[in-house]
Design a binder for these strands. Sequence first.
DNA 1: ACCCCTCCGTTCAAAATTCGAACTCAGGTT
DNA 2: AACCTGAGTTCGAATTTTGAACGGAGGGGT
Lengths: 157, 157
Amino acid sequence: MKWDELAREPCSVARSLAVIGDRWTLMILRDVFLGVRRFETFQARLGISRSIVTERLNLLVAEGVLERRPYQDRPVRHEYRLTAKGLDLHPVIMAIVDWGDRHYAGASGPPILRRHKGCGCDFHAVQVCSECGDPVTARDVEARPGPGAAARAALAP
Amino acid sequence: MKWDELAREPCSVARSLAVIGDRWTLMILRDVFLGVRRFETFQARLGISRSIVTERLNLLVAEGVLERRPYQDRPVRHEYRLTAKGLDLHPVIMAIVDWGDRHYAGASGPPILRRHKGCGCDFHAVQVCSECGDPVTARDVEARPGPGAAARAALAP
DNA sequence: ACCCCTCCGTTCAAAATTCGAACTCAGGTT
DNA sequence: AACCTGAGTTCGAATTTTGAACGGAGGGGT
């Protein structure tokens, strides 16, 4: 399978990854959620080729995850901001943060603390069931084809 | 920045992505969480180069996300199963699923439904604060350097 | 014995992607 | 005039990924 065919798979993971599943795109999104908005800042923080920054930002804008808007004239400069669709990616980043904090933080603790403004506490993200509110683990979930599924061979043994 | 330098960044997102942030690794993990365990099945479902499957599975085993264990002798055959560390990635996959369901499902609905065994309902994942249990959105979070942070230049303006 | 099949890889040339560094362009500063 | 900044673009070289063939250890049928 080629990368761009992913978007046409009948699978929400595949379709999401076609947009955000790139090597550097998730790093750019990390920075966006930390408040970075400018081309130069992305490039400097990530230390990657400028052409890659250009390409990834363009894709995210084309997909409606980021919005490119001018913040000054003469000379015109643009900044990249999260759209509502982009803000919906927050749980993805937080889930990744949580896994990293749990398995790759050193003895001194996580490199970044996050405070929940609602209660004022430092927290980590917990995933719960939308219906009953109980925490969800991998063992608690049963998957089956849904209404948007195309006919497809059964899962091999 | 080169890809393998990511692992040495003082950032949980970077360190996680050094392991799972690859084009195909997350697709392999999707399949693992759906019950796929065998080399042939990964390769057939993803339709990618066998050498990539080999390399990605080896990395996931080396990182302790998957475990390679024999399931028969003569000839010896191995299967790949999630370790406890691997099971901890479930929220990451579920967060990606949720975003895809929300923004890329067609009119007919999501391609896969997931039932929570605890309450028996079809559900989607919701992220809540570990301390107060309220849902968390991007706007509710304030990040600041934590104990594991290295000295680093302040966030550019 | 002989031939074909399965599972799990390895090898290797060709194609695609990424890197690094230089270049552009529009305007601002000293 | 000379230099600086922000936001890219260009392009040859280095690295990855692909596709397709090959290998090997055993199983099954005839």
